[in-house]
């Protein structure tokens, strides 16, 4: 149920943002607001982590899991990226393509 709210608020935000996109202040306020909301949430995440002895004790295990997952993401992206280069070579340049339209 939580997840519906998460996506729902995002979509409502996009809709309202579109509605008021001519007002420059809306864009500025959203950038500032997002920054502070992220700070607040990371602080709260820190608070609950610090209060959870299980996480504090298992921090190195979580670190290893994170390390493996990041290697996976990196490896996958790099291998497919290399494949893209092999297929298209140097033609991946945006500038060369835009004047073809």
């Amino acid at each position: 149920m939580d997840i519906l709210f998460v996506i729902g608020f995002f979509l409502v935000g996009i809709f309202l943002g579109r509605l008021f996109h001519t007002r420059h202040r809306v864009k500025l306020a959203s950038e500032k607001g997002m920054m502070w909301a992220v700070y607040l949430l990371l602080f709260l995440l820190g608070v609950s982590v610090g209060n959870n002895p299980q996480i504090v004790e298992n921090f190195h295990t979580l670190g290893w899991q994170a390390f493996l997952l990041s290697l996976g993401s990196l490896g996958g992206s790099l291998v497919l990226g290399k494949l893209l280069m092999v297929l298209y070579g140097t033609r991946m340049d945006l500038k060369k393509r835009t004047h073809e339209k």
């Binding site: 608020f9 995002f10 979509l11 409502v12 935000g13 996009i14 809709f15 309202l16 943002g17 579109r18 509605l19 008021f20 996109h21 007002r23 809306v26 864009k27 959203s30 950038e31 607001g33 997002m34 909301a37």
Partner: peptide, 8 residues
């Protein structure tokens, strides 16, 4: 807020 940023 992220949505508003994207939409605007």
């Amino acid at each position: 807020i992220v949505g508003v940023g994207v939409g605007s």
